Amino acid sequence: MITELVVLGLLLLFVIPSVLVYRLQHKIIFAPQYYNRRRLFAEFPDLYRPLELQVEKGIVLEGVVYEPEERSATTMLYFGGREQDSVTLIGKLSLHYPSVRIIAFNYRAYGKSGGEPSEAAYHGDALKIYDYVAGHYGDPVLLGYSLGSNIAVHTAARRFPKELILVAVFESVKALSWARFKPVPRMFIKHRFETISEIPGVKVPFYMYVTRDDGFVPIAQPRKLKARAKEGMVVDYKEYQGYNHAQLLFSEEVTKEIEKVLAK
């Protein structure tokens, strides 16, 4: 009887949560979005220009560049969150940062981009996007939000952007699953997005803006990332209250901080 209870306890504590995470993680991590808000590009063609980037045979990513009326020497490359159509978000980004060039591409399966989501594909595509942007506009400032914070860190660890801005950054999918569910063995996690292992490789100045009221990422995770960063690379780290995960990016306080970075 005791043995049966132990087995049942192990099933409830480890096996069942692990199987659920393994089977559902694709939907948990990736939530491709398409918002039909592209009339802005037709109405203001001098400001918003659609882009396309072929990342491999048969797979083209949808992108857009916002060019301010007065040409800017600063380019911001945006990597968005799991539920964002980053191309249509360009309108909102340009309202907050009207004086800088802003470029965004949709991940595979998001917006009009082709292909299927995966960690390896997103990381590989991000490097190709960076090289395209750097080749046409010079090295950009990277802004990564939520899922995009990992992709921005992965990119910055392999390229040399001017600076790196992270909003609502998380440690890893494993750490998130442990915080939200129960302990899940690493072998059950297909898409790991381990920011914690990438961040020591970032050799450019970067900024971290997080919230204690995130509701999704425990505050211990960005604190751990800050501690793992290469000495002297974290220029600014701020913790806020009163904003959840979705509200932080366009909060008044964070946009003011990002404005300061872009104005340099």
Rank of each mutant, 00 (worst) to 15 (best):
L40R: 02
H26V: 00
Y78H: 12
E253Q: 13
E253F: 09
L51S: 04
G114H: 05
Q84C: 09
A152T: 07
A120L: 15
D213R: 08
F44Q: 03
K128C: 10
T255C: 09
P45H: 07
Y66F: 15
V100A: 08
S251W: 07
V235S: 12
G91K: 06
P68V: 08
F170H: 09
G135Q: 07
M208R: 08
I165K: 04
F170N: 04
G91T: 00
A227G: 07
Y97R: 11
K203V: 04
G80M: 01
G58A: 13
E116L: 15
K203P: 01
S146H: 04
R23H: 10
E253A: 12
F41L: 07
I165A: 06
G138D: 08
E171I: 08
M208D: 07
E259N: 15
P218C: 06
M1G: 11
L11N: 09
S197T: 03
V19Y: 11
G138K: 03
S99K: 13
L53N: 01
E52S: 12
R228N: 03
M187H: 03
A179D: 05
F206M: 03
A263T: 13
V141P: 02
F216I: 12
S18L: 02
P117F: 05
E259C: 13
V153L: 11
A175L: 05
A179M: 07
L47S: 11
L47H: 10
R82F: 01
L8Q: 11
R23D: 00
P222N: 06
S251A: 06
F79M: 07
R192N: 06
Y35V: 01
L10R: 04
F44M: 02
E194W: 14
R228D: 00
L164N: 04
Y207F: 14
R108S: 08
G63Y: 02
E198K: 12
Q54L: 09
V184M: 00
I196R: 14
G63D: 01
A220P: 12
G242I: 13
G58K: 10
E67Y: 15
R39E: 10
I16A: 12
D85G: 08
E43V: 06
M233L: 11
S146T: 07
P200R: 09
